Amino acid sequence: MPGPKDLDPASSPRALLGAELRHAREKTGLSQEELGGRLFVSGSFIGQLEAGTRRMQPEYARLLDEVLATEDFFQRNCAASAKSKYPEHFAEAAEAEAVATTIRHYLPLLIPGLLQTPAYAEALFRTYRPMASDPEIEELVATRMERARLLDGPTAPLLWVVLDEAALRRPVGGTAAMAEALHHVASLVGRRRVIAQVLPFSAGTHAAMGGSLKLMEFADAAPLCFVEGLDMGKLLDDPATLARHTLTFSLLQATALSPPDSLALIQSVAQTYEHEQHP
């Protein structure tokens, strides 16, 4: 099991803001639950703010300044912590992902972003943004590849993905890009950077036909769930919702092929793409 991530306050405004929040709360003698009650949120939400896994919103910054008597410290500094290179609907989830110890992810149609190659990502971005310039596309791809480097570090999270067979069969970027993308996934599996299962078409109906699902666990904060759609996404921390989605992912794992059989299918489909290039 990977160890907890170290947050550097000097390089992470959210980590600094979280550390200051913890200091101010403890100075007033309030527990996380007590402070959460003053803000009409849960104690686990306060813990997530302190751990840097949740972004501080302006309305909470104002209330914190009032409750903790910190003048306007949190209001002045929450803007810096909100700056992100990711789209607004995904920014908070991407930042939480970077400090997670465990990530479990299911996508119905795509290879997850953490497992993508530059060619695969470029094909997606050019489809999503047909009027974007080449420099804009290059910047988007570079940001995604930078995010994927999360798997290369010594404290990489335990990443468990369930890939729908549709993600393997849909030729994003053409046969060459797909062959490269699937070989990359197989390589990550072989290097033990990810556990991958494939949910085959033969499984029929399954527990997550309604959309994608990402579950994240942390060393020093309550778990989170991220659900998303077209240009929208939401982080959820309600215990009942998390329990339901955790069960959903467990059902997906039970329905999917075993990791060895999944790897064999990924490699087989990659070879099929290669044969289509060179019949």
Rank of each mutant, 00 (worst) to 15 (best):
S187E: 14
A222T: 14
V227R: 15
E217F: 01
P171H: 07
A222P: 08
A179G: 05
H184F: 14
F201P: 05
L182G: 03
D164P: 07
F218S: 15
W160H: 14
F218L: 09
G210M: 07
A166L: 06
V172K: 07
L158D: 14
A222C: 06
G211C: 09
M178Y: 01
R191I: 01
L215F: 12
L213A: 15
A196H: 03
D231T: 09
D231V: 05
L199E: 09
A181N: 00
R193W: 01
R192Q: 14
T175H: 14
L199M: 10
W160I: 15
M232Y: 08
V185A: 06
G173K: 02
M216Q: 13
R193P: 06
A186V: 07
T155P: 02
I195C: 08
S212C: 13
T175Y: 04
T155F: 10
H206V: 12
T175F: 04
A219F: 14
M232N: 12
M209A: 12
A196C: 13
G204E: 09
P157E: 03
M216H: 08
V198N: 03
A166S: 14
A176I: 01
P154D: 15
G174A: 07
R192T: 02
R193Y: 00
R193L: 12
G210S: 13
A208P: 04
E180W: 05
G153K: 12
L182W: 05
R193I: 04
R191L: 03
A208D: 04
P223E: 10
L224V: 11
G153W: 09
C225M: 15
V172Y: 01
S187N: 08
D231L: 10
A208M: 02
M209H: 05
V185G: 02
A156I: 04
A203C: 05
V198E: 06
M232H: 10
L230D: 04
